[in-house]
Design a protein around this nucleic acid. Structure first.
Lengths: 229, 229
DNA sequence: CGAAACTGAGTGAGGGCTCAATCAATGTTC
DNA sequence: GAACATTGATTGAGCCCTCACTCAGTTTCG
């Protein structure tokens, strides 16, 4: 399945976080521990208000130990980000694996994306908020992750309209909008839960709206333009 | 013009910031000064990394003076927020005042909204980021501001489809999506500027997409549902 | 002159990070 | 298998620096 490959295979520029610990397995397991605690504390209090002491406690390790697995508080934020993107990409790939009817693929992937983001809304919310806390190195990784995310939707749309005359500009833009639909769900959650009975209905409604919007991609007029630099 | 009234007239729950200074005019002018400096520093370094010393300097006042006009650093953030919402709402109202052809009203308001947000992207970006820094009191004000924003778009859509059978649920949801279109422009700015030549084209493209999406509001099927609690 | 406004060095709390001491596990020697 | 050695991992009290905020003294102005 090329779409999955496309999304998975590109090597991720991962910022390497060095550690004084030798045992690789131990590094992995301790970092997992740290992520779990950090995500809890961070999404509750935000990056700046959370103290490393609290994070350590929530993770069930001591301050000193923690600092053998990360160099700075920012590193902790970064491994949380990695954790989150893994959950999202694995979830989406799983959804893609289970699709046979390609006509419904669009809705299925959109739905899965909305579900995943909604389930992890607290974590995602705070990661979006704190994206300003990253240093230049980390930012590049974050942006390239986002790019791959958009590319997934681009590929999705290309399959959806294969054998039809597509407007490149509109397709690329639509991919951006689609990848962003889930963020709407999260950043507007208060407004949405107040105004609507069921989140499931809202999700379906968003997908309907998007499904309508993407029709433009194959409409006849203004089909020559290409937005790529 | 009822739409403007609707947007303007509702009393804003403004958190009252007390000051030791007696002269009301002085309070206003000094606070304007502070906002200008703060917005510059905040949008560059974020709320937490910006120091009040820097803000004071950028505003051209001393620390001590500043603290005669605000109680806390958070107050500064709050008056920045007020400043921003004023710019946005005044800009949108102005756009509405100049519309005669009601058929083009939708596109005009959307365009103006995207323009305004794009012009002030740095400030808006950071306000979105730091919304977590507000205390409970300020959050309520922020949310009610957001609500009014959504309501503006709801009214806009209602006029756009007046005398047609509208699906209430879809209309409300569409209003949320529309109000969010501008945020896409800002939070995805890196991706967008990298992928597309002209921001103007992107804006038009977004409006096109949205214009297509809202067609659902008056489509025939599923017209009975109502999402309001 | 007196009230209002301004000043900025000083204070105190908070919190990121360190490191000398300790512990645990494995290896080595007799 | 006991005594000792070595290496890797853990610990948390405390160092130290960064601000947000204060206030006693000064200036401005009506």
């Amino acid at each position: 399945m090329p779409l999955i490959k496309n999304f998975k295979s590109k090597p991720v520029k991962n910022k390497w976080i060095e550690s004084s610990i030798k045992n690789e397995d131990l590094i992995e397991s301790r970092r997992r521990q740290i992520v779990l605690g950090a995500v809890k504390v961070f999404s509750e209090k935000g990056f700046h208000k959370a103290t490393v002491r609290e994070i350590a406690e929530a993770a069930g390790v001591t301050m000193g130990t923690m600092y053998n697995y990360v160099r700075t508080k920012e590193d902790i934020l970064y491994i949380c980000y990695q954790h989150m993107t893994t959950i999202l990409s694995e979830g989406l790939n799983e959804a893609l694996d289970n699709v046979e009817d390609s006509r419904e693929e669009f809705r299925t992937v959109m739905k899965k994306n909305l579900d995943l983001v909604f389930e992890n809304q607290d974590e995602i919310m705070f990661l979006y908020r704190e994206s300003g806390a990253y240093d230049t190195d980390a930012i590049r990784t974050v942006l390239s992750q986002e790019m791959r995310y958009v590319e997934l939707f681009e590929a999705l749309l290309r399959r959806r309209f294969k054998n039809q005359k597509i407007d490149e500009f509109r397709l690329k833009l639509a991919a951006d909008i689609l990848s962003y639909a889930s963020v709407l769900l999260v950043l507007r959650r208060w407004s949405l839960t107040r105004r609507f009975d069921s989140m499931e209905e809202v999700k379906e409604g968003i997908i309907d709206f998007m499904e309508k919007g993407i029709e433009l991609i194959v409409s006849e007029k203004k089909s020559d333009e290409n937005g790529k630099k």
